[in-house]
């Protein structure tokens, strides 16, 4: 870890458990670090690549979770990128499955990875023109209320009132 700290601009180290740590690195150096970890430090297996939306901080957190199969340890590389300019350098050349992850992140979070294969192609959603749905400010309930209408003839009840009516019909 010290070796990485001297070579890269790591801002934060969290030791979650014996064989799992998380480190934070600025966006510009992230792919160099991930490449270094893969090629020099033995973190050959990419477990996952995902994002979390920190709406209140106006940031997305990208996590590259890497695994070192020889030392049996995991390292999460965290990168914070601005929500305004949600763009990140592509890593599809490092692992074959990364292109799929990036395609999903583009669709679900609106994070762009210029140069990643098929990154603009719909992955799960088809003809989606709304806000990327996994962003925190996308209101799923509001979306379904606006998009779908109540089926005619269908009643909606308050659960507590309905149970009371069913179980104790005589009680006022």
């Amino acid at each position: 870890m010290n070796d990485i700290k001297t070579k890269f601009d790591i801002t934060d180290i969290i030791e979650q458990r014996e064989n799992l740590s998380f480190i934070t690195i600025p966006k510009e150096h992230a792919i160099s670090l991930v490449t270094y970890l893969r090629d020099v430090k033995g973190f050959k297996h990419l477990v996952l690549l995902t994002a979390a939306d920190w709406l209140e901080d106006e940031e997305f957190q990208l996590t590259y979770l890497l695994n070192n199969p020889d030392e049996k340890s995991d390292l999460g590389v965290r990168v914070f990128i601005s929500r305004e300019d949600a763009t990140m350098e592509t890593a599809h050349h490092l692992w074959e499955q990364v292109a799929t992850y990036q395609r999903e992140l583009k669709e679900m979070f609106g994070i762009d990875f210029p140069g990643s294969p098929d990154v603009d192609k719909p992955f799960i959603l088809e003809g989606w023109d709304d806000k990327p749905p996994y962003r925190r400010d996308f209101d799923t309930k509001q979306y379904s209320e606006d998009t779908y209408f109540p089926r005619p003839g269908r009643e909606s009840n308050d659960p507590a009132e309905y149970m009371k009516k069913k179980l104790y019909p005589d009680e006022k």
Binding site: Q16, L48, L65
Partner: peptide, 19 residues
């Protein structure tokens, strides 16, 4: 906090990343 928990399922490594 955040963590990752894994298990071996029939198809391979199954895991949950939780924040």
């Amino acid at each position: 906090g955040e963590t990752y928990s894994r298990a071996e399922c029939t198809r391979g490594e199954y895991g949950y990343y939780m924040v």
